[in-house]
Amino acid sequence: MGRYVARRLGQMVIVLIGATMVLFACLFVLPGDPVGSIAGSDKARDPAVVAELKARYGLDKSLPEQYVNYVSKVATGDLGEDFIQRREVSEILGPKLANTAKLALLAITLVTVFGMGVGIIAALYRYSILDMATTFFTTMAVGFPTFVIGMLLMKWFAVELQWFPQLGGDKLEGMVLPAVTLAITDIAFVARLTRGTMLEVLRADYVKTAVAKGLPRRRVLFKHVLRNSSIPVVTYLGISFGALLGGALITEAIFNWDGVGLALVQAIQQQNNPIVIGVVTYSVAIFVVLSLIVDLLYAALDPRIRLS
């Protein structure tokens, strides 16, 4: 197990380096000039100011030098200074991360509870009205784009029924609509995944053994079926949580939620590269760390992986 963790940590570093390199290269291939966005339009600006700005942000150095500079700073937690507010990127992103994390936590809870719950019920009452309704609604949910779901929820529950505020706030009521918007597609996915794996496990020989042992139905289901069918679901939930923590561009924009997703959209529009790089670096890191956690969970759930 120790060696397994060490190997996965090594892989993690490689993925991080690769991802930041690609990102760095992409930003410089894109048209536009970050100095221009700080110093004003091309005609009016002073060449001396431009040179000073370039020196200040290290933009006068070659691309590889800039990359090395960036990586060595990131390693110590320093994401640099942004172009617009001249504040530490980590300082700007900190509260936004907290906002995104709150939303992600609520969303993943909804996904876990409703996704798995609906999936289990659909599998246990296969071909019933309940099961067919699940199939119908999950297909719909998967088919609808997030922005449509978000807008519809806002129209119905915020504008017409006025159960929730239209825009997010610090209170729980403000979180409900964006969290539901984020969760709906994943609830549908998780419900279908859970249903599928449950049905597969229910047919397994060891479930027949458990019944033949005279175990009560509840014990058969919750001990022998659930643990085995939760393995692929846990994988999906982990990856999904990673994606949620990385910020939701569309949902945060719809509900004007002050998270990393919204920050990223604004930073791209303003060519505020340090913020863009900061957000993406963070997203990649979170994603990689969560994949590691998923793998460890996987090993904890399945001794065949842990002990091979």
Binding site: D205, K213, P216, D302, P303
Partner: peptide, 25 residues
């Protein structure tokens, strides 16, 4: 009937690998 199963009458299956739950000792 559940109480009879395992206690008064028991069954041995063909394929022990698939008939034992892989995730419990």
């Amino acid at each position: 009937r559940r109480k009879l199963r395992g206690d008064k009458m028991a069954m041995i299956f063909q394929d022990a690998l698939s008939s034992l739950n892989p995730v419990y000792s």
